[in-house]
Design a protein around this nucleic acid. Structure first.
Lengths: 285, 285
DNA sequence: CGCGAAGTTGAAAGACCTCAATTATTGTGG
DNA sequence: CCACAATAATTGAGGTCTTTCAACTTCGCG
């Protein structure tokens, strides 16, 4: 059974069979499908069931007072939509299906039970929310400090890596069902300008985007333009992590030797005596 | 003893004397001072002690490949700098003192113990990280969907409220030790442009900013320009919260009746049968 | 009082937006 | 399977917001 949540959490830790069974159990309590454009959760709601994206693509979004919509995050399979309602009184934003999307519905009580029963799973869930926050920080950097081209390139790199982590997409292609208008709401520019910038990336032979499939032709150059340093995704494959999991995204490697998980602070970690990050094998595009 | 962490967490829950003593204990394990400009934590580090800002002002920051610095968050007294190193392998950004700052050093073991001992305190800490993430989301909205003037106004409103929560500042004035250059790195514009936009706010009689004190002269109009809806800060004062705590920020009320904690989804919550949010008393500026 | 850092201002260039029209693509009913 | 409508993508021209560069002024502090 395809369990993207488990695949994602395995980026952080290794599960024993009991824990793994526990995660599989989580997604068996029911599911629901949402049509494209439908709200999965709306601001102000406080659901009793946690939504886990199983298939499709969703987004967090807010609309400003003057009608400008801003997408705040993408939710790919394996992402939890609303774990915050555990603690916060209500959602402060909408979660919208960007394409037909199905979510597993996890009763809040199940999560609560898990939090009291398994330390390892609790840590994994915590990691998940912290990794989400790290992505959010990078979005702030993108929007505040990068120009349109770099910003677009960065978001494409992010999506590629995140899809690959949950086993979706082949080679350097991933599903890309959203419209340019939606992509422009994510990158904080007009759809007209996005179209022009995207055209630039296309004519430079960096990406292809047709029939809802994004193909990154030249990941190395694109990630240079994006200043994409995957370390912020915190996909650490520690000693706890399964080597087989590591291989799942292993071919996303910059031929220059800057691997997916090698980041700007690799040297710092070495200095701290924790060793350099694992360097996956290089491989042709 | 001034304990800004407790003051902040009391926005979310009420503590019994034992819990309160536990929080006071946390900040008694030692402290350290940092000069302005000094790194409190650097990217790549993985500290054994959690840093809690007790006085001063700090910021999370990242520097892009082309040398552009982006501030990602402000850390006021009561904010935890690096609770993520519990879970993540290493910090993915720097935490820098914007003015002379002192931090309490909380041994990680103390936090761990707290997490296993007190359910209420665990929830409170979790709330704290989720409220931080909510602020981050609003920063993305600000940078992606608001123009320079609105963006600046928004960040000033945020700082005012957050300072007030921990009992700092009087009336509508708060400490504001950062330079315009640093503020421009936060708002994602050049210092030149920031200077002009700030001048506009000043000449319109909305704010005053001199000798490191920010005074918000007309909070109502400023928050209109900012489209500031304080609900995103999740400073819910539930039944668990102490009314005395509520009063601490209670005078930050928009004279029009849109209170500090009333947000766009007030009506939605009502429709869901959970009642309207608590409406603090209105009061003159 | 003098020095360095921070704040302020002007003018011109560049990035991005707006508006509007055109073309391509997708989905649907016959 | 095709025709049609609706949606999405593309392009052009001109305007606005923001940046760049450089000079100048003010402030803080020894």
């Amino acid at each position: 059974m395809y369990n993207p949540l488990a695949m994602k959490l395995e980026q952080f830790t290794r599960f024993d069979p009991v824990e793994r069974a526990r995660i599989d159990e989580l997604i068996r309590h029911g599911s629901r499908s949402y049509a494209r454009g439908e709200n999965i959760i709306s601001a102000g709601e406080n659901t009793e069931e946690i939504h886990l994206v199983m298939a499709g693509l969703a987004t967090r979004s807010k609309v400003t007072h003057d009608g400008h919509r801003q997408l705040i995050a993408f939710l790919v399979p394996g992402d939890l939509c609303d774990i915050e309602v555990f603690i916060l009184e209500a959602m402060d934003h909408d979660v919208v299906a960007l394409t037909d999307t199905t979510c597993a519905l996890i009763p809040a009580s199940e999560i609560k039970r898990l939090l009291t029963e398994s330390c390892n799973l609790t840590r994994a869930l915590w990691w998940s929310t912290m990794a989400d926050a790290a992505i959010l920080r990078e979005w702030v950097v993108s929007h505040g400090a990068r120009d349109a081209k770099s910003r677009l390139a960065h978001i494409l790199c992010e999506l590629l890596v995140r899809y690959r982590v949950v086993g979706l997409g082949e080679n350097n292609s991933v599903p890309f069902p959203m419209t340019q208008e939606e992509l422009s709401d994510a990158t904080g520019m007009t759809s007209v300008h996005l179209n022009r910038v995207l055209k630039d990336l296309r004519t430079e032979g960096l990406v292809e985007l047709k029939s809802r499939i994004l193909t990154i032709v030249d990941f190395e150059r694109l990630s240079e333009i994006a200043q994409f340093e995957p370390g912020y995704l915190h996909l650490v494959r520690t000693q706890r992590a399964d080597p087989a999991v590591a291989d799942r995204v292993g071919d996303l490697v910059l031929p220059t030797g800057r691997g997916l998980f090698e980041s700007a602070w690799g040297s710092a970690r070495q200095a701290l005596g924790r060793g350099a990050p694992h360097k996956p094998r290089a491989m042709a595009s």
